[in-house]
Design a protein around this nucleic acid. Structure first.
Length: 731
DNA sequence: GCTTGCGGTATTTTT
DNA sequence: TACCGCAAGC
């Protein structure tokens, strides 16, 4: 099969044709990572080194999996049967669905999504009499997830927790586990945990999976966490044919538990492994590579690669510093208008650190009637009306789905409020059954209205279950939407209601389409639980606005990296710790390397943040870029900060994670601040307040009697004060 | 049970 | 500033 290896360069070919044993492919940005992965699969199959049932290829996103499968099938000229190409979660889920009992799960367990997780934590807090404001469910779940992904379990954590803080977490966690169990639900992390446990404890299942993963390929290896590593090690047997492809310089999910050591210390994890570096870049021009390469070279934690290209020339990388975010957006829109002569709008992107930054660009592009789309907005499957409809569907399939029941028993409202739910929950707890069971029995103390409503509710579900036999799934959903009254909820012709009705119809269409593909309703529900994102990229001729995280894996002719400022990139919350600062640098690197032909970074000298205009300064990452790697095209030449100057300040994005006392530093930073107010207060001043203690002035709003100060107090956090009323002492 | 208004908060979010 | 979630009030 020479055709397969002909169009590869030497290192690529070495990776593709590698024999048995672990292989790490260090694939620089744009070096043909997916190509190596897909060619390797095709090569193994075409040369009878592997049977298709022995191929397992794991990715992080459904999109990547889909692309991989398609490209392999294109190479092979036929569909790939038997093998597995999918995400870690789907892989785990398949193991669990096949043998739920092995994992101690009910046969028809459900997947709890983020909302449902939060709901359960909230209930638990309420039960414990804790204030959700003091213990934000989001943060609690984050901590639990972090622990789980590092290999902990509720019980192991509870045993090891000594201080009251961790004991509290252990208690909440325990309740959370109990709730999931009662609901027959697993969360995203559980899928991996349980799959790992099953593989560990059930030799026959393990051996089956090991056979299926005789050739195991893992994409984006830099993003794997400890749990995923456990999983991989469990299924690697005999020849240990792991092909891991990744790039430590593009590791941007540390905060989600990604463990860079998996790639940095690959050889230690997998003795006897080979390593191939892909350093020839086929994506970007030389100037873009030179600039991004200089930036990432400043990182310590990396194995080190130097990307090169055989293509000469290319436009300079530009830096533009504008007065504010409007000037920034204007400049970008101007450039994109010019560039439109050579590049389509679909090949242009504005990338940024935070979602909030899209705003000024949306406004400017709308004003100019330039087509654009924001990636990462509300997701189809996350919309309330869609989730409601899905909950009905879930109840049809699995009558005792407590989560779904609670979600829609009163949607549309039918007089079943908190009081009714409490009664039902009381019965369920008392009898040791589910709420749905309790509701079915229609306890006597229910209000008459609630009884009637519940009866009707169950009638609808029962009828739907009967209809399952006669209607095809799409029609079943249609019927359910009518019968439940979900559709009627959005009667009317306001834009919002119409949109919601359309979403519901779209859902019915999606179900019908899945059925046509031969997918069972159960499988369909699983699929969308795993696929939070709705992949409809059907507006290609538009400028893309998105976060740097969302941009990973994509490429565009024209890329603009917006908000190249200290506080934003690196983000204020991630610049103190060296490890996270390096991750911020990688984030910038990912952004820059998305560009094929044209790249610019822009800075707004002031930004509207938290209700105030805050001065900013260019990113400290500029210091990593030698001046000949970019061209400053700002209207007025503004000085670029020296290394370290931007440390610890309160600049854009602005609140220091831990306010630091030294007045010396505050003074120094204040000198760079433009605004100064009549009252003699200015950003950077250290002050003392009777109640809040000491703090630092972040910004001044208004003048004269309307003057307000935004102060960040060391202990009390951010407050807005009127200096003439609040007694402030200047330090 | 639904609406309104207040207070608190303000990264990134593959599944 | 802008949004979200919750508590009070209709």
């Amino acid at each position: 099969m020479s055709r397969l290896t002909d169009d590869l360069n030497d290192p690529q070919r070495a990776a593709v044709t590698h024999g048995t044993g672990p292989l790490l492919v260090l694939a620089g940005a744009g070096s043909g990572k997916t190509r190596v992965l897909t060619y390797r699969i095709a090569y193994l199959l075409a040369n009878d080194k592997a049977r298709d049932t022995e191929i397992t290829a794991v990715t992080f996103t459904n999109k990547a999996a889909l692309e991989m499968r398609e490209r392999v099938e294109n190479l092979l000229g036929q569909p790939l049967r038997g093998g597995f190409v999918g995400t870690f979660h789907r892989w785990s889920l398949e193991i669990l669905r096949r043998d739920p009992e092995a994992a101690g799960l009910p046969r028809r367990f459900v997947i709890a999504d983020t909302d449902e997780q939060r709901q359960m934590i909230k209930r638990e807090l309420k039960k414990l009499g804790l204030d959700p404001k003091e213990h934000p469910p989001r943060a609690l779940l984050g901590r639990i997830s972090g622990l789980v992904n590092r290999g902990a379990s509720q019980s192991s954590f509870a045993n090891g927790s000594s201080d009251s803080q961790s004991e509290l977490l252990a208690t909440i966690w325990k309740g959370y586990e109990a709730r999931k169990k009662a609901a027959g639900a697993v969360d995203f992390d559980d899928m991996l945990v349980l799959a790992r446990d099953v593989l560990k404890s059930h030799a026959e299942i393990r051996s089956r999976i090991q056979d299926r993963a005789r050739w195991l390929l893992v994409d984006e290896f830099q993003d794997t966490n400890a749990l995923q590593m456990d999983l991989l090690e469990l299924v690697l047997a005999g020849e240990r044919n792991l092909t891991a492809v990744g790039d430590e310089d593009q590791s941007i999910y540390r905060w989600r538990g990604a463990e860079m050591d998996n790639i940095l210390a690959f050889e230690r994890h997998f003795p006897g492994s080979s390593v191939v570096k892909l350093e020839e870049n086929y994506r970007s021009t030389a100037p873009i590579l030179a600039a991004s390469g200089a930036l990432i070279a400043a990182n310590q934690r990396r194995r080190g690669k130097t990307l090169f290209t055989s293509h000469e020339g290319g436009e300079d990388v530009r830096l533009y510093i504008g007065a504010d975010e409007r000037a920034e957006a204007r400049w970008v829109a101007d450039r994109f208008q010019e560039l439109q002569r050579r590049h389509s709008l679909g090949e242009m992107a504005v990338l940024m650190r935070t979602n909030a930054q899209t705003r000024s660009f949306e406004e400017e592009l709308t004003r100019r009637h330039m087509a654009h789309r924001v990636v990462g907005g509300l997701r189809f499957w996350q919309r309330a009306e869609v989730k409601d409809a899905l909950a009905y569907l879930r109840l049809v399939i699995r009558a005792d789905d407590t989560i779904a029941f609670e979600r829609v028993v009163n949607v549309p409202t039918r007089g079943i409020g908190a009081a009714t739910i409490d009664i039902l929950r009381g019965h369920a707890d008392h009898d040791g059954t589910t709420m749905v069971e309790a509701a079915r029995r229609l306890p006597a103390e229910l209000a008459p209205r609630a009884r009637i409503s519940l009866e009707r509710f169950f009638q609808i579900l029962d009828e739907a279950r009967d209809k399952r036999a006669e209607l095809d799934p799409g029609d079943l959903v249609g019927w359910l939407l009518e019968a439940s009254g979900l559709l009627a909820m959005y009667d009317g012709d306001s834009e919002e209601k119409t949109a919601r009705r359309e979403n519901l119809q779209q859902l019915a269409a999606a179900v019908a389409e899945a059925a046509q593909r031969g997918q069972e309703l159960e499988a369909f529900l699983d699929a969308i639980a795993l696929l939070e994102e709705h992949d409809d990229d059907d507006a290609p001729e538009a400028i893309t606005l998105m976060t740097l995280h969302a941009a990973k894996g994509l490429e565009f002719d024209v890329v603009e990296l917006a908000g190249f400022e200290d506080g934003l990139l690196p983000h204020a919350n991630s610049r103190d710790e060296p490890e996270s600062l390096e991750e911020e640098r990688r984030l910038a690197y990912v952004g820059m390397t998305r560009a094929r032909r044209w790249l610019a970074m822009t800075v707004a000298r002031s930004r509207f943040l938290f209700g105030t205009r805050v001065p900013t300064r260019p990113s400290r990452f500029l210091v990593d870029l030698p001046e000949d790697r970019y061209t400053d095209v700002s209207d007025t030449a503004l000085p670029i900060p020296a290394a370290g100057l931007s440390e610890g300040g309160r600049t854009a994005g602005g609140l220091p994670r831990r306010p630091r006392p030294p007045a010396r530093r505050a003074k120094k930073a204040a000198a760079t601040v433009i605004d100064e107010t009549g009252q003699g207060w200015r950003p950077g001043d250290r002050i003392r307040h009777g109640r809040f203690g000491t703090g630092v002035v972040l910004a001044c709003q208004g003048t004269g009697p309307r003057l307000k100060l935004v102060v960040f107090f060391d202990r009390a956090g951010r407050k807005t004060l009127v200096p003439t009323i609040a007694k402030l002492e200047r330090l």
